[in-house]
Amino acid sequence: MKSNGQTADRHNDQWELWEVFVQATAGQPHEHAGSLRAPDAEFALQNARDVFARRGKVCSLWVVKAGDIAASTPDDAKAFFDPADDKIYRHPHFYKLPRGMSSE
């Protein structure tokens, strides 16, 4: 694992990169909407409001510095994800799903 890197670059004269998560209605998950640059948390929220919330239906915003997100790397993929491939019994394919639900 490594940290997302962008914000550590002190030679970069851009503001820090922030990732934005929006929630459409109460109870729904906050979903990743995109990223933007801002000098601090207050402006990250304001900019997120202007860039991502002006037209869509939004009831809550989260912003987080991109550099604070720990992300898996392509090198991790084999060890992390492949073992799930051949264990079909871990997937809920053997249940009858209620109408209107999808297993994907």
Partner: peptide, 11 residues
């Protein structure tokens, strides 16, 4: 001065 502020002022 920056894209995000351009959008904010236009809004």
């Amino acid at each position: 001065p920056i894209l995000e502020e351009d959008i904010a002022l236009a809004n």
